[in-house]
Design a protein around this nucleic acid. Structure first.
Lengths: 382, 382
DNA sequence: TTGTAAGCGTTATCAC
DNA sequence: GTGATAACGCTTACAA
C-alpha cells in the first residue's frame, strides 16, 4: 500500500485505510455501499472516517467515475460599475428565482449547481465558454447568454438545455413558459372584460425570445379582439424599472391621447411605469391600467396591487435541471421542448376590485397551452 | 503512448496529442503556457485543439494540481410547496445579490462558484455538509446556514468565510456590514431631524445575526437620543412582506397610540408594512413613517419612495470571495473581519420631501464604522 | 469478505 | 524543445 501520499493536512482515503487497518478498496466500498462488508470492518472504517474528518476528493471521484455530479448554469451577471443606471439588473428576479429552482432540483438529484456568467471574463470569449465547460456534466443556458449558432458546438460536448430560449434549437432541449397563452388571457381580460381598446406594450430587451413572444402575442391578440396596440419601437425598454419609467414619461409628454392600458413584459417595468404615471399625476387604474409579467413577490404589495401573469420561475429552473439529469442518467426525453403553464393573476391595477382575500387573486387556467406541454411541475416535484 | 483511452465521444489530451503528432506533455505545455514551444509545434497543437473541440477535464486538472478552482457558497434554499405562505422567501433579494457579487468576483479570479443549499437534502445532515465540501477549494457560508459550533470542523478542511455572521468565529473570516452605524444614522434622522420619539422595529428571523445587530443598535440609539422603541417580541417577523404586514396589522388592532415611525430590518418587510398601513387607511409618511434596510431596486419606485439603508450586497459577496481567494493563494489576511460601510438613503417614506432628482437620494457617510473597517469595495473591484 | 492493481485525464519532473 | 513517466485520490474489475 502506497501509504499516505498527501503532505497537506487533508486526509485521503489512504489515511482512512491505514487508520482502520484495511485497504483503500474496502474504505471505498464502505463509503459507497457496494458489496458486503463485515459489520466489524465497516464500523472500524466509519470510525476512522469520523475521526479524521475524511471527505472524498470530488475531483478524484469525478475523474474515476467519469461523472462530476456538477451541472452548470450560465446567466448574465454584469458588474454595474461601468453603468450606474443598471444597478437594477436586467430581469434580476427572474434569473435569480430560476437559479434557485435549478439549485434545488440539482441538489435533490445529488448534483451541485455551478454558476457561470457570460460576458465578464474568459467565458464566452474562448470557444466553448473557455474551460469552464470542463467542470460540468451538463449546462443550462439562460436566455440570450449565447447566440443560436454557438449552441451546437457546446452541445456536442455536454448536454445542453436552453432556458427561455426561442425553442428552435436542434441540438438542445428548450424549457420555456407559455408566453402566447398568457398574453391571450391578459388581452381578453383587458379588452373584453374591461372594454379597453387602446393599449401599449412596454418591451424588455428587444432580442430576448421571451420578450418577442410576449410582444407578438399581445399585439396579435389585442388586434384580433378589436383593439389597438401602439407601435412597439416607441415602447421598447430594457426590463428595468427606470427604463420603463423613461419610456412612459416620454410618451406622456406626447399630448396625443394616452393608451387605456399599459402592459409590461415584466413586473419590474410595470413598477417603473406605475411610478412614472403617479409622478405625472395619473391614477392607476382609473386613468390608465397597468399589468406586468412574472408575479414577483412585491407585486401583490404595490398600491394598487399589480395585475400580472404568474410564470413558474422556480419550476422553470427545476425543469431544466430535470431534463439534464434525465439525459445524464440515460432516460429518454419525450420531447425537445418543455412548455410550462402560466396564470393570469388579477389584482387591482387593471381596474378590478380587491377581492375578499388579503391579496386578491383570481386564477384562470391557461388555455392555448402549446403542444406537448405538460405540467413539468408535477413531473419535477413529484 | 497509451493512445486514446476514452470510449466516449469526448476528446482527451491524448486525442489532441495524436492529432498533432506530439506527446501529451507538449499539449499540456502549450495549453498552460509553460516552457518554450517551437511556434510550428504550438500551431499544430492549437489546430488540433480547435479541430477536436478539446476542453480539458477539470476533474483531472483538479486532481493533478490539487486545486479545483471552485468555490462553494452555501445559502438557504427551501422549496416552498410545503408552505404556500413562504412563496416570498426569507430575504430573497439579499442572498441573490450576494450570490451575484460572489459569482462575479470568483469568475474574475478564475474560479467558479458552486451553489450549495443548507436544509434540503443530504447537506447539513452528515457532518461537513455531506460530500459537497469535497467539490470545493473554499466555502462561503451565509447567515444562519450553520450553527456556530459546526463551523470549526468545516474550516479544518477548507477555508471558510462567514457572510453576515456574528463575527465571533475563531476559525473563519467574517464579512459583514456596519449594521450598528447604519441604525445610528437612521435613528438620528428619525428622532433628531423629524422629531419622532415613539418608534417600533420590525425584525427579521430572530436568530439572524444581522437582525439582532440592527435591532439592538436601533433600540439603543433611539433610547440614547431620547425616544422609545416598542418591545421587540411584539414586532418580530420573518424577513417577508406578508410576515411584516401581519405584525403591523396586529398592532393596528391594538388601540393604544401607534408609533410615529416603523423601521424594518429589510425592505421587503417595509413594503409589507406600508401595505398594511395603507390597507388600514393610514398614510405614509403623514400618519406613520416607514424605513427599511437593503435598498433593493424597487424601493425607489414605491409610493412613497422608501427611505432605507443601502448595504453593498454585491460587494459583500465579492469581498467574501476575495478573502477566500487570498487565502488560497497564500496571501496573508490583515484581519479576521471585514466590515463594509452602509449609507442612509433618504427618500419620502420618512417624511422628507422629494428631491430635485428623479429619485431623491441623500447620502451621508457612515460614521461609527467598526474598527478595522476599510472599503473592501475598492479592495475588491480595484 | 477483502486486497491488489489498473485505470480515469491532467500536470510536472526528469531525461534527452 | 520535447518525450517518457510518475504522481494526484478515487472506483472497480479481478484475484484470493
Amino acid at each position: 500500500m502506497p501509504a499516505q501520499r498527501t503532505a497537506e493536512g487533508v486526509p485521503t482515503i489512504y489515511h482512512v485505510a491505514t487508520a482502520a487497518g484495511v485497504s483503500i478498496a474496502t474504505v471505498s466500498r464502505v463509503l459507497n455501499g457496494h458489496a458486503k462488508i463485515r459489520p466489524a470492518t465497516e464500523e472500524r472504517v466509519l470510525a476512522a472516517v469520523r475521526e479524521l474528518g475524511y471527505v472524498p476528493n470530488a475531483a478524484a471521484q469525478g475523474l474515476s467515475k467519469g461523472l462530476k455530479r456538477i451541472l452548470g448554469l450560465v446567466f448574465a451577471n454584469p458588474w454595474w460599475h461601468d453603468d450606474p443606471l443598471s444597478i437594477e439588473e436586467t430581469n434580476l428576479l427572474f434569473a435569480d428565482t430560476v437559479i434557485r429552482g435549478a439549485q434545488w432540483n440539482a441538489d435533490r438529484h445529488g448534483y451541485s449547481l455551478l454558476l457561470l456568467s457570460s460576458g465578464v471574463t474568459r467565458i464566452g470569449h474562448g470557444a466553448l465558454f473557455g474551460d469552464v465547460i470542463g467542470k460540468v456534466d451538463g449546462l443550462v443556458l439562460l436566455d440570450r447568454v449565447v447566440r443560436q449558432e454557438r449552441v451546437a458546438p457546446i452541445a456536442k460536448r455536454v448536454p445542453v438545455v436552453l432556458l427561455a430560449g426561442s425553442g428552435r434549437s436542434r441540438s438542445a432541449v428548450t424549457v420555456r413558459v407559455d408566453n402566447a397563452g398568457a398574453m391571450w388571457l391578459l388581452a381578453e381580460h383587458l379588452v373584453l372584460h374591461h372594454g379597453m381598446r387602446r393599449t401599449a406594450f412596454v418591451g424588455g430587451l428587444p432580442d430576448s425570445p421571451d420578450n418577442l413572444a410576449r410582444l407578438e402575442a399581445f399585439e396579435r391578440a389585442v388586434r384580433e379582439l378589436g383593439g389597438t396596440c401602439e407601435p412597439a419601437e416607441r415602447w421598447s425598454a430594457d426590463w428595468t424599472s427606470p427604463g420603463a419609467a423613461r419610456v412612459v414619461r416620454r410618451r406622456l409628454e406626447d399630448k396625443r391621447r394616452q393608451p387605456e392600458a399599459i402592459v409590461c413584459a415584466n413586473d419590474q417595468m410595470a413598477i417603473g411605469a406605475m411610478h412614472a404615471l403617479a409622478t405625472a399625476g395619473l391614477r392607476v387604474p382609473d386613468d390608465v391600467a397597468v399589468a406586468g409579467f412574472d408575479d414577483i413577490p412585491v407585486s401583490a404589495y404595490l398600491s394598487p396591487p399589480l395585475t400580472t401573469i404568474r410564470q413558474p420561475m422556480r419550476e422553470l429552473g427545476a425543469a431544466a435541471v430535470e431534463s439534464l439529469v434525465k439525459r445524464l442518467e440515460g432516460v429518454a426525453l419525450d420531447s425537445r421542448e418543455v412548455v410550462l403553464p402560466t396564470k393570469l393573476i388579477v389584482r387591482e391595477s387593471c381596474g378590478c376590485q380587491a377581492g375578499a382575500s388579503e391579496v386578491g387573486e383570481a386564477t384562470l387556467p391557461s388555455r392555448m397551452l402549446a403542444d406537448g406541454a405538460r405540467s413539468a411541475l408535477s413531473e419535477t416535484v413529484a
